[in-house]
Design a protein around this nucleic acid. Sequence first.
RNA 1: GUUCUAAUAGCUCAGUUGGAUAGAGCGUUGGCCUCCGGAGCCAAAGAUCAGGGGUUCAACUCCCCUUUAGAACACCA
Length: 566
Amino acid sequence: MIVKEIESLLKEALDSLKYECENLEVIVSNRKDLCDYQFDGLFKLAKNLHKSPLEIGKLIVDALLKQEKTKQILKKVELLPPGFINFTLNDNYINHNLELMIINEKFNITLPEKKKIVIDYGGPNIAKPLHVGHLRSAIVGESIKRILKYLGHDVTSDVHLGDYGLQIGQVIYGLKEEMITPDKITLEKLEEIYPKISGLCKENEDIKKICASITKELQDGNKEYNDYFKNIREISQRDIKRIYDYLGVSFDVWNGESDAYPFIEKLTPILIEKKLLKKSEGAKIIEVKEDTDTKEIPPLLYEKSDGAYLYGTTDLGTIYERIEKYNPDEIIYVVDKRQELHFETVFRVCKKIGYTNNTSFEFLGFGTVNGSDGKPFKTRAGNSPKLDFLFKEVKEVFLKSNEKNESMNEKDLDIIVNAILKFADLQNNREKDYIFDIAKFSEVIGKTGPYLLYTYLRIESILKKETINKESFNEQIYNKEDRDLRMKILELDNTINFAAKNKLPSTIANFLYEMCVNMNAFYEKNHINNLMDLEKKENWLLLLKLSNNVLKSMLDLLSIEIPERM
RNA sequence: GUUCUAAUAGCUCAGUUGGAUAGAGCGUUGGCCUCCGGAGCCAAAGAUCAGGGGUUCAACUCCCCUUUAGAACACCA
């Protein structure tokens, strides 16, 4: 990594002066007009040594310039007030690093220590169609998974269906009321019944009690209810899978809450042995309060007073299973941030059991999808729009945006609809709520998915006309657009490692957009096909090929594909 | 009520965890096709980073207060 090399130069210079700096960090410049990389630690150094930053800076720069390696890497080292050391790379060194990216796997990025990770995202409920609220967990989770895998981690993804709570009792109740036998269940019926009975339960306490008892009996193994459950799950899961397939989202494990039950049975004795279970108001709870708390943390409700289990219980059972099966270093949850408190209590129970000694738990909350009024997104009918509806809308808007789109094949159309949605979503910061406006989400000009795809295809059409048979650059960089593009590509390593460390796919999305801006600027300024200077032509072709390879690979981490043409 | 989270250009968002002159897209105004794909490129205008204090050589970023909005808070998930 380039920053590491500059840091080691700096370290050597500091050592020669007997200066100590605990957090020596060189960063990508935020003043590209002045330099490529910068060091702003002089102020702290100055404070410790009781000298002025410029005085110390002068000595460090002098020491740097004495080092042989400095000349190989850096064209310019400059000290600027109020106290920055600015580094500008040698053209040769830039090209050398680009070559390493071409020759080595995964563009020569630095790979972290390999970890075993379980990632839990998606989390749809069966018997309920997927709506826009499910989009983020799927897209963001899928992207985080791909990023972690790319960096070499051993990742297992689990969709973790919501399949065993009160909602199932409600649906079974509704089906029985309408005399529908398990073999006659249809998807349409499920989608109709769930909201109906759910509404009824809010109004009528008696019906709610019946649904709760059905749920309890189901959990206890009632044959009839289990027949219902199996078919509901199968029908529903088939449809959920269809949507995820369309989005290119896939899971290694299709477990749900119901699959946690055998493990709850194994977990309960452990909780009893550790004296964690307490009775409270007829229910069994686990207290998780800590002395240092500034806020009230409610206990985890392990068993309802009627003996049924809740989602905290199934989450714990699931954790038991994951630890037994995979013994992971990390378990990551990509879940709506409104569930943060719930997971906080679950994680605290894990700490009490001792799971946190070997496994770290991470809750990645994502914001709510809101409508243009700032309230959770709803259709005119008052429901969250189904994802099918959203896909259809976006496709229609795209078709209308340009006449020639009519002639596009279905596969390319689907790829573009995916790109539009995913890029619109992923360029936002994961944690924040965001406004979902269908007009905005079907935008095809500006900072959008189609812009990136267009950039790729346009560059590709140049590359197709030529053959490239070299893997190295000459010593030159020809102009500003050329240099800007090369420098941007070199940021890949930093970017992807930052994205992985902070689980922020948006970093990659924004990087790719910036790189495409550089690619387009290059494209406008530097015409290649008719170039007489063959050496220049070969260098530029090689550069464009690398750019497009980076673009394609990184788009894949955002689960965005590239169409044949558009 | 308690506790969290947020507030950046007209709109929608970035902002690499405290660094130099706060960046994009849309929208607005004006340029650019005898040349590789104009879904593009170049430029202009537009910001008291909600307001006020504090810490620091340095604050959109950290701390405190105020305002506004959202969320969570035991038998739903």
